[in-house]
């Protein structure tokens, strides 16, 4: 059985999907398995936005070394998103500030949004999936 089973890519419907990442990686599986959903969604030609707020901004940090905890380093996958035509990556300014982070600390190019901008982006979505 493959991930591509029963995919209906020919429906012609294009919806605005937001994947909202609010959790740090490694402590729980949500960041990793959330990323897996995003990669699959790319095959459906939807209008995808990926958003990082709260501890979710830690998913994008540079300089990760997971060898010592013996789990996969999936942070590099965020850099591959471009190749899946997932180009809309947003981070929340307030969440970055609260954690002493700037765009320089992140492994991918992102658009930094204020809380109000983020709120408006969320309000215009058809589907929001949060991990």
């Amino acid at each position: 059985m493959s991930e591509m089973d029963d995919m209906d890519e020919g429906s012609g419907i294009i919806k605005k999907f937001m994947f909202l990442n609010r959790k740090a990686p490694h402590g729980t599986v949500y960041a990793l398995e959330g990323l897996e959903v995003v990669l699959i969604t790319a095959a459906f030609d939807q209008d995808v936005s990926m958003v990082f707020t709260d501890d979710g901004v830690y998913q994008l940090i540079k300089g990760v070394d997971t060898k010592g905890i013996e789990v996969k380093d999936f942070s590099k996958t965020y850099r591959a998103l471009d190749g899946y035509d997932i180009e809309k990556l947003y981070v929340d300014q307030k969440s970055m500030d609260a954690r002493g982070l700037t765009e320089e600390d992140l492994i991918v190019d992102v658009t930094v949004l204020s809380v109000d901008e983020m709120a408006n982006l969320m309000a215009e979505q058809d589907v929001v999936i949060s991990f």
């Binding site: 059985m1 493959s2 991930e3 591509m4 089973d5 029963d6 995919m7 209906d8 429906s11 419907i13 919806k15 999907f17 897996e36 959903v37 699959i40 969604t41 095959a43 459906f44 939807q46 058809d126 589907v127 999936i129 949060s130």
Partner: peptide, 20 residues
């Protein structure tokens, strides 16, 4: 039944509402 993640994405595309 066991199937792929595409079935999740499809819920978002095809149905009126998706609740988590």
């Amino acid at each position: 039944r066991i199937s792929g993640l595409g079935q999740l994405v499809e819920m978002g595309i095809q149905y009126d509402r998706l609740v988590t």
